[in-house]
Design a protein around this nucleic acid. Structure first.
Lengths: 203, 203
DNA sequence: CTAGATTCTGGTCAAACGTCCAAGACGTTT
DNA sequence: AAACGTCTTGGACGTTTGACCAGAATCTAG
C-alpha cells in the first residue's frame, strides 16, 4: 500500500472539500467552478475531476460533511442538557455564533436550496435534519413537554429562519429571543414548565 | 407618443419579469441565463439587455416584485385579523399554500441568499421584511402581548424556517404546528386559558 | 533497479456565458 | 411620402464553463 503518495492525495482531496464549503458560502452553490476550487486549493484544475466525479458531487460531499459535523456537535451538546431550558439556551447560543452572514449559515441555506434540485442530496440532508429533530424531541419528551416532535420541528425551523432573517438586518437580541422562544417549551397556563401539559411519563 | 409599440414593449418586459421569477425558483439565482430568460419569454436574446441593464438587475426587480406583492397581501390580511389567534391562523394558512417546494417559497429563499451578495438587493429586501414584521408586531401589541417586536420577528422567522425545512421532508401537520406556534402568542404564567380555547374575548 | 500504482500537470475541447450592436420592423407624427 | 421613436432581431465578441486526457512526476513493491 502506498503511504506518502496516498497521503498527499488524501490531503488534496480534503483541501478541496474545505475550499468547496467556503466557496459555496461566498459565491453560491451554482457559481462555484472547477478552476475556482483548484486555484484556492492550490492544485491544478485537473485534480478536481480526478478526485471527484463532478463538481456538484464535490459540493454535495463538502456541504454534507460540514453539516453532519455541526449537527453532531450540537446534538452531543443536547445530551448534556438536563432541562429544556438548558437545551434552549444551547441553541440560542448557537445563534450567537452563526448569525446568518457567516460562511456556515450560508452553507446551510445554500445546501437547503440545492437539495431541492438534487434528489440524492435532498435525501441525505433530510436525514441529517431528521436526526437532529429526533434528538431534540427526545430531550423535550423526557421532560414531559406536550407535542415534543412538533415543538422540536418548530424550534429547529425557527433557528434556521432566524439565521436567514438576520442576514438582512438586525433582529431581536439574544435576551428577547430567549424570552420568546422560551414560550415554545413553556406551555401556556402554567406557572412553571412541565407542570400541567405533561402527557408523557418521565423515566 | 407611440401606443402599440410601447405597449408591446411593456408586455415583453413584464413577461421577462415573470419568467425570471419562475427560473430563479427552478434553477437557482446564479444559474439563470440571458438565453434561458429570452427563450421562455418568447423573445430574442437581445431584448433582455434592451429592457434591463443586466441579468442580475432583472432578477432583483423580478424577485422584489413578487415578494412585495405577497407580503402586501398577507399584511392586508393581518389588518382584518381581530385577535392574535386570527393572525396566527392566517399565517399558518399561508404555510399550507407555500410549503417550501413551490416556486414562491424557493424564490423567497433564493432571494434571501442573493441579497447577501448584492448590497442593493439586501437593503430592498430588508425593508420588505421589516415592514411585515412591523405590521405583525402592531397587531400583537394591540392585544397587549409582551415583547411584540421580538415575537413578530420569531414568528416570521419560524414561518420561513418551516418552509425551508419542509422542502426536505414531511414535518408536523398544520394542527400540531398551530398548537406549538400558539404558545408564542400565549405567554406562560398569564393565568389565561390556552388561546385555542378562547373565542373572541378582548381584554 | 525495475515494474507497477497512484497522483499531478497543463492544456484542449465544444458549449454556454453576458454583453453589445448594426440593421430591420412597425406604428405614429409631420 | 418622409422622418421619427420605439422595440426587436440575430449574430458577433471575448470569456468562462465542465469535462477530459496524454504524459510527466512521484512513490511503493518486488
Amino acid at each position: 500500500m502506498s503511504a506518502t503518495a496516498a497521503e498527499r492525495g488524501r490531503e488534496a482531496r480534503q483541501r478541496l472539500l474545505g475550499v468547496a464549503a467556503e466557496l459555496i458560502a461566498e459565491r453560491g452553490w451554482s457559481a462555484v467552478s472547477t478552476r475556482m476550487l483548484a486555484e484556492r486549493a492550490g492544485v491544478a484544475p485537473g485534480v478536481v475531476h480526478y478526485h471527484f466525479t463532478s463538481v456538484p458531487a464535490l459540493l454535495a460531499e463538502a456541504a454534507l460533511g460540514v453539516m453532519r459535523a455541526l449537527i453532531e456537535q450540537l446534538g452531543a451538546g443536547l445530551e448534556q442538557a438536563h432541562t429544556p431550558d438548558e437545551a434552549l439556551k444551547l441553541m440560542v447560543g448557537f445563534l450567537k455564533d452563526y448569525d446568518g452572514r457567516d460562511p456556515t449559515s450560508l452553507l446551510f441555506a445554500e445546501t437547503y436550496l440545492a437539495a431541492g434540485r438534487d434528489e440524492g442530496l435532498r435525501r441525505a440532508l433530510g436525514e441529517v435534519v431528521a436526526e437532529f429533530r429526533r434528538r431534540l424531541a427526545d430531550r423535550l419528551a423526557e421532560h414531559g413537554l406536550a407535542a415534543p416532535e412538533a415543538t422540536a420541528a418548530v424550534l429547529a425551523a425557527a433557528i434556521d429562519g432566524i439565521m436567514l432573517h438576520r442576514a438582512l438586518g438586525p433582529g431581536p437580541d439574544t435576551a428577547d429571543l430567549t424570552t420568546v422562544l422560551d414560550r415554545l417549551i413553556t406551555p401556556a397556563g402554567s406557572g412553571r414548565p412541565s407542570a400541567r401539559e405533561r402527557t408523557a411519563d418521565t423515566p
